[in-house]
Structure formats: C-alpha cells, structure tokens
Design a protein around this nucleic acid. Structure first.
Lengths: 332, 332
DNA sequence: TTGAGTTGTTTAAACGTTTAAACAATTAGA
DNA sequence: TCTAATTGTTTAAACGTTTAAACAACTCAA
C-alpha cells in the first residue's frame, strides 16, 4: 500500500531510474532499446506508478496549475466563468485554484501572494478597482497573467473583455427605436473602467439618437439595497419609462423592488440588463438583456495565459468579444 | 528580480541555511542566539523571502491543500458550498482545488485520481451514485476524506449531512396541517441515499397523518425537462393540490412549467422545495422551502477532514445537521 | 587494429526545503 | 583540572523527480 516510486519501477524492470524517466517522458526514444522500453512500461503498468507531482514541479519549475481570482464567486457571472476556465485548464492538464477578491483590493493582493507562493504557472484575474499598480508590478516580475472582464485602458497587459461601450450604445439605440423616451441608467459608483464604459456607451447612444433623454444614477456598491430602490423611486417621479441596469447585481435588486411595488415590466416600465441570471426564469414577461459570451471569454483567457507562459516575451494581446442583445429570456 | 532562496537569506545574515529554516519555523528557539535570530529575521524581511511551497511540500509530505469534488458546480448549492469550504480552508492556510463530477462516476474517479496525484492532504466529496466502492478503496488507502451532503449508510466514513428523512417528514406534516389533501412528490430516480431519504420521509409523513394521500413520480435525471412537466400534468389530472420538489433542480424546472401554464402557486397548487435558490426572488408569492445550513455544513466538513488528517486513526464521525422550514422566501 | 561513431545505459547533480546528527566552544560540576 | 553538560551553529542526507554528462560495449571504415 506504500507509494510506488520511480525507484520501485526501475528495480522491477532492472534498470536505472533515469531510464524509467526517459521512457515515461518519451525522451531519447531513438536510443532506448525497444525491449527495455516495453519492460519498463510493463512495470509501470503493473505497479500502477504515478509520478509525484511535487517532485516534478520542483524540478521542472512548473506546477501545471493556474490561479483565477474572481470578483465575487457568489455571483453567477463569476462562478460560470470559473467553471469554464476550470474545464478549459483541466483539458490541458492544468489544475485551477480559485479565489474571490469580493472586490476588495487588500484581499486581492493577499490572494495573489498566496497563488504565487504556490507557484501557479499563470494568473487569470478579474482585477478590482484600484489594483492597477499591483498588476503593473506583476508584469515587471514577468508573471504570466491575463485580465478578464476588467481591464485598465492605459496598461499594456493581455486581457479578454467585451465591447462594453458599443453594446450599451447599441442597446440604447434599440430601446429608443421601440419608443422609449426617458431612460434611467443605473451604474455603480466605481473606478472600474468596464462599468464606466457601459455608462458612457449608454449615454452617448441616447444623446446621439436625439429622440430620448436619460438620467444616470450612481449607486454605492455597499448601499445597493437602499440606493437602487431610492433611485428607481426618484426616476418614476421624473417619468422615466425604461431602466438600464449595467450589472446583474443592480438588475436583481431593481427587479425585486419593481415587483414589490407591483410595477409591471415591461408594461409600465421597461428594463434592460447587462448579463443574464437564472433569476429571470421566474419572471413571466420578456426581459431583454445583453449576453456576454462567457464560454469564449473563458477559453480565450486560458489561451492567452498559456501564450504568455510559453513565449517568454509575448506581447500583450487584448481580445474584445462581441455581446448579443437577447430580446427575451423566455424564448432565449 | 530573481527568486530569493533560503540560501540568499543565509548568506545575507552570515549563517547556514539550516539556521534560517529553524528561525523561520520557530524551532530550536531555546538554543538559537537572540541576536542571530534577529539578524536572520531582518534579512528575511529585507529580501522579502518567501519559502518555496513545492520544496516544503516535497520535504514535509504535505501540500497544504484540500480537494473538493462537488456534484455539479453550476448548481447554486454546490457553488455556495464551494465558497464556504474555500474560505474555511483558506483561514487555515489551505488552498482548495475544486472539481465537479457532474454526477458522473467516471469523471468523479478521474478527478480523485488527479487530486491525489497533486498530493492534496484531504478530500471533501459529494460522491455520485455508485461510487461506494471507490470511497471504500480510498479509505483502505488511509486517505483523509469526508463526504458532504451525500453518504452511504453502510459505509463507516466521516460525513456531514442534514436530516433528510425527518425534514421531509415534518414538512409534509406541516403541509397537511394547512389542508393539503393530495401531495405529489417529485424525486430523481437514483440510488443516491439522501434523495431517497427525502422521498421516504415525505411518504411516511403523509401516511402517518392519515389525512392526505400522495403520488410519487421518479424523474430521470437526464430527462428532467421533459419528465417534470409530464409528471405535473398527470398529477393535475389526479387532483394533486401540492407538490414537493425534493431538489432545487426539480423545483426550478417545475416552477417554470407552472408559470408557463399559468397555474398560480400557491393558490391553485402549492409547492414546497428542498433547498432555496435565488430564483425564488423573482416570484411574487410566498414559496416555502427547506433550508440546509450550508455554512455549518462547510465548516464542519473542513473540521472533520482536518481531524482525519491529524489523527492517524481517527474514527469516522457522522454529523447530521438540522434543516429549517422557511415559510416564505419573501420575508425570509 | 585503431580510432571514430553508434547504441544503450548509468551516474550524479540539481530543484529548495527540513531536520537529525555532528561539531565546536563555552560553562559548570566534581 | 578534567569531564560533562549546555549553548550555538553547521553538515549532510533526504524528499522524488529530470537530465546533462559520462560510460561501456559494439560496429565500422580506413
């Protein structure tokens, strides 16, 4: 029942451990005697030998593991992404260690520290507000990393994200073409660039149409349960006839309020969401939303981080993916 | 910018690497000269030395990591549990590697294999149907492990779970006291003991009351989208006035069908769920459900696995936690 | 028949730690 | 004064791999 080592296999096959290692790793295959190789493979099989990952990692300076720090793993967006990234990493023989910054910079910093201590080979990060300097520092340390969802416009670092500005712009255009006159935009009061882009895109889209007006409400992330209802209330008084929720968290709180107040959507007030949530399943009327291509995002992120890992001096590459405006969650 | 090693610290402090190691690990503290120790600590600080986890792990035969295999990480139940376990492990300085068996036994087996290859120190497992032998094999290999949610009644292995039978029994009693006459029980057609206990508990509860009847429908896990609606349809014809969904997945599909068919809950048909989901948020009427104490479950699981890890011959310990019947998701 | 090349295999160092054991210098006990 | 104990530190082996380099035994051309 003891752990079987290279040494045991070598002994059984009557060779040195080097030979076993060579055969297992498919090296020097031209040199090694065919019979010996077979004998070794048989011994490996028979003893059910499994190389010790730690020893390998130590020697090869490669742990075959990636780190992913989500923004908030309790949020469906993050957990779905985690799932996809995990599967994708797995496919390449890499394990994924997942952390959640909960949008806290110190926590983010601590998690990075831990992941690096554990010598992960690469990082996929949903960087919180204010972490720009930290990312920059990681880059000068040549740590392979890719930002996902979040990004910093001035920082030359690989990232995967969606067309936040354009998606919001187009969504508003469409909203207006349906006859909306006054649109309320709800967005977190944050330095996070991607969220501000969603706001800007929406504002510009509305402005450009010349057929509608908008009111923007900045929501404090920690006061969301209070401020979203307050914002909606105030907008109702100003005859807002459509709401744009720039994140799923805002959307969920907002919809809950609208339901409690028995304000029918989209009859009296229409609503559009960035991101979908399974919560929509339980709403009887169509709820349009902007869908991010999660699968592609995850895949691409893994691809980019591998690229960083393999090519020492690989240039930063930013991938911007397209969203889709889904008219109704009901018929998908 | 190069990685700083024990050797570098030793050099800087003018001592051998052994001394540095001793100081860092707080060993031989009675022997070591106070000044030397301080000199070493200063050097560590100055060089910002971080021990290499791999080397440590290899030497100590301890990776300070746990493996958690969820049933289906896309399911809120699993992901919340993962979150809690991760936090709890983290608190103890352990990393968590998460996998999802998706209820597939081969996949479960493969994941275990991978985790063991990576030398995780302990396992927390939501074991899929049919994995009993595998668990038994792990136990004879003395792998520290704890089952969570799922368990095998005849297998003496540490586990954390809830009172599935009693919770279902009591819930039915309560249902009947509210006047339900004919209750439809929906449960997966599975060998999973905890789900069958939910069914048995409900059936026994109803039988014992003598004031109501029941119909049980076994649902094939892979046909859930077809079979749940069919089951509900057939039950409607038989004047069923209440539904008991023994898992959140069944509940979500069932509610979606009821909504599509415009069957008002709980007016025409009442419903009770095992597990809560955020989906309920978007339903205007009260939906009662049985709540599992996720936090306690996760904490206890980590506690038990640590116990297994620390005490070589620690006996299997089963922890059965209490659920709560929540009357309405609306006022929690 | 010698030296060079080829084939097949082993030796040994390295990865970065931990820690038992050895060692040296000082102090204490008789 | 000599031995024993104490204090402070170093040496070296070990954890389980990978891999460059060395080695041994042939083959072959000149």
């Amino acid at each position: 029942m003891k752990k079987v080592l290279l040494r045991d296999v070598a002994e059984k096959a009557g060779v040195s451990i080097a030979m076993v290692s060579y055969v297992l790793n498919g090296q020097k295959t031209d040199r090694i005697n065919k019979d010996t190789a077979q004998r070794i493979r048989d011994a490996v099989e028979e003893l059910n030998y499994r190389p010790n990952f730690l020893a390998q990692s130590l020697k090869l300076k490669k742990t075959f593991s990636l780190g992913f720090i989500a923004a908030d793993i309790a949020n469906t967006f993050s957990s779905q992404l985690a799932r996809i990234i995990s599967d994708e990493a797995d496919r390449a023989g890499y394990a994924l260690i997942i952390g959640s910054s909960d949008e806290s910079k110190p926590r983010f910093e601590r998690l990075i520290d831990q992941l690096l201590n554990r010598q992960v080979d690469g990082l996929i990060l949903a960087a919180p507000d204010g972490s720009e300097e930290l990312i920059k520092a990681l880059q000068t340390r040549k740590i392979p990393l890719v930002l996902i969802d979040r990004y910093f416009p001035e920082l030359p670092v690989s990232s995967v994200r969606v067309n936040n500005y354009q998606a919001s712009f187009d969504a508003m255009t469409h909203f207006i073409s349906e006859g909306r006159k006054k649109i309320g935009i709800l967005v977190f009061d944050t330095g996070l660039h991607h969220l501000n882009e969603r706001m800007r895109g929406a504002q510009d889209g509305i402005t450009q149409s010349k057929a509608a007006a908008y009111i923007t409400h900045l929501i404090n992330e920690n006061q969301i349960e209070q401020e979203v209802p307050a914002a909606i209330q105030s907008m109702l008084k100003q005859d807002v006839d459509a709401l744009y929720f720039t994140s799923n968290k805002l959307g969920i709180v907002g919809m809950r309020y609208l339901m409690n107040q028995q304000i029918p959507v989209p009859v009296k007030m229409s609503a559009l969401f960035f991101d979908e949530t399974e919560v929509f399943d339980f709403y009887p009327n169509p709820l349009p939303f902007i869908r991010q291509p999660l699968k592609e995002m995850g895949k691409k992120a893994v691809e980019l981080v591998f690229q960083q890992m393999n090519e020492a001096a690989s240039a930063a590459e930013s991938v911007v993916l397209e969203t889709t405006l889904v008219q109704s969650h009901i018929d998908q």
